[in-house]
Amino acid sequence: MDIFLQIIVSGFAAGGVYGLIALGFVLIYKATSVLNLATGEFMTMGAFVCLTALTQASAPFWIALPATLLFAALLGVIVERVVLRPLIGEPIIAVIMVTIGLGSILKGITHLVWSPEYRSFPPIFPPQPLDLGFAIVPSGLLWGFIFALVCTAVFTFIFKYTRTGLAMRATAANQQAALSMGISVKGVFALSWSFAAITAAVGGIIIGNISGISIHLGHIGLKVLAVIILGGLDSIVGAIIGGFIIGILENLAGVYLDSIVGGGVKEVVPFIILVIIMMIRPYGMFGRPIIERV
């Protein structure tokens, strides 16, 4: 029983990070109807920038983090302006492929600037784990969870209660109407991309803290697709709850199924869940079904 609770708790904590990364997907999808398959590379790049700031410039974490976020925001804006804007109104395959191509470019650049070997972060958070009584949360997961929660809260607040958030929601609801109300749709697009890049960078830093980083960190970005399908592509709440569910299920499968089918189940379980959801309820728990009218 103890081990079961332990698994649930670690899954919950990992789920928080998934939820945060999923939030990046959802923010972009809501505002611009683009599925950003380069999210994983945004994560990797953010994590490496932070690591460089910490080790090479030996800056304290409270300087390195804002610097990374600034970098991520800039990256998001540049990507939106240079790559995505010419493709507004193009068919889906073009938009999907452009993000894949973008991912390839970013991965190459990351590889070029930071060599491919595996690295670990210097300890940022206090190392003592949290003892809940029935389960123990390792420090990395605990702080990652707290971080993810704070970030999600901040973005939800911006989205729900500020003028900018209102503009973003209006754009998501109806671009034409938003334009005629004087909202700068281009500005909203740029903002969404920079927000998404920021969430991805924070996600990358958290994961880097827990398990170290290499240029292949980006694979997690694809795993998170299961989260957004479960939660619904256009639902912020769905992203967060989906993150927890996938995190827990993945950890459970990793412990209980690994011995049966022989290793590595953790990597594939999110995708199996994804296919099952797709068959039963394609628009996820909280997603809005797309109704087509002729």
């Binding site: 790559v83 010419p86 493709l87 193009e90 073009a94 492929m97 452009v98 894949i100 191509g101 973008l102 991912g103 390839s104 470019i105 970013l106 991965k107 190459g108 650049i109 990351t110 590889h111 070029l112 060599s115």
Partner: peptide
């Protein structure tokens, strides 16, 4: 030579992106 390996990724990505933008 260590520059060329990552350059493959970059060139591959650039090809996709530039074809999509300039010659769909």
């Amino acid at each position: 030579e260590h520059v060329f390996l990552p350059m493959k990724d970059v060139i591959f990505g650039l090809l996709i992106v530039s074809f999509l933008i300039f010659e769909p």
